[in-house]
């Protein structure tokens, strides 16, 4: 996916936030977007999702899925209700039981959902609540999947489950916004884009990312676990 000379101005702002921004997002692989707080990572994700009106070129037009950094929770709802909604919308099934699940989801998701199927959201930990929605949404087939800080508030064991699910669907293009270098290290093949000064300042692949620490203080701190 390519962004060519893209400019975006916030409503009521006088000057553009992004001006002549270029990004070449390799398809069918995991990509990471890093940058300081306020750098515009979520705004850039919105642009890729077609949610903000921009000038410039955005090609090709892909089907997209977005996962929020703070997933809204409805405490009274059970895991099976959320599954029936998300998988029902994705597959067109109006009824869903635990027995149907095996045919609809990948193995790590099935293993995670089965023991908590009847539980209310309020009975789950914050990390489990977030993971339920993340894993369910990742069963929905889209060309481009944007995950905004998906590992925040999740323990590393559950992060490993999340990444297993991502790896189980390699045909998609992923853009993962993260502040945690461990997320990047969990993948063998990837591309990292650094957003700074309202531009994609640099991009690295798995072979060159380790050397990036020498280039700026932010990158040095980012690479420190």
């Amino acid at each position: 996916m390519q962004l060519k000379s893209v400019s975006y101005t916030f409503p009521r702002a006088k000057t553009p936030f992004f001006e002549n921004l270029n990004l070449n997002l390799p398809e069918h692989q995991v990509n990471f977007l890093i940058g300081q707080n306020g750098a515009g990572k979520t705004t850039l994700a919105d642009i890729l999702l077609g949610l903000r009106p921009v000038t410039g070129e955005l090609t090709p037009k892909l089907s997209t899925l977005y996962l929020n950094q703070k997933l809204p929770m409805l405490p009274a709802i059970r895991v099976c209700d959320v599954a029936a909604l998300v998988l029902g919308v994705a597959t067109g099934r109006v009824k869903l039981t635990l027995n149907d699940l095996e045919a609809l989801v990948d193995t790590p998701t099935l293993a995670f959902l089965t023991p908590i199927w009847e539980k209310h959201y309020s009975d789950l930990s914050g990390g489990q609540q977030k993971l339920v929605q993340l894993l369910l949404f990742l069963q929905v087939d889209r060309d481009l999947v944007v995950l905004d800080e998906p590992t925040a508030f999740i323990d590393r064991q559950h992060v490993a489950t999340l990444f297993k699910v991502i790896k189980a669907h390699p045909q998609r293009t992923y853009l993962i916004i993260t502040h945690d270098v461990r997320d990047i290290e969990a993948f063998d093949q990837y591309r990292v884009f650094w957003l700074a000064d309202r531009q994609i300042k640099q991009g690295w692949d798995q072979t060159t990312f380790a050397d990036a620490a020498n280039e700026a203080e932010f990158l040095q701190n980012f690479q420190t676990v």
């Binding site: 999702l49 949610l51 997209t64 899925l65 977005y66 996962l67 929020n68 950094q69 703070k70 997933l71 809204p72 998300v86 919308v89 994705a90 949404f137 929905v140 889209r142």
Partner: peptide, 15 residues
């Protein structure tokens, strides 16, 4: 309210 919680942005990509 759902929009302000970010729910609409996420679930709009589903429907």
């Amino acid at each position: 309210m759902l929009r302000e919680q970010g729910y609409l942005k996420q679930y709009a990509s589903l429907v």
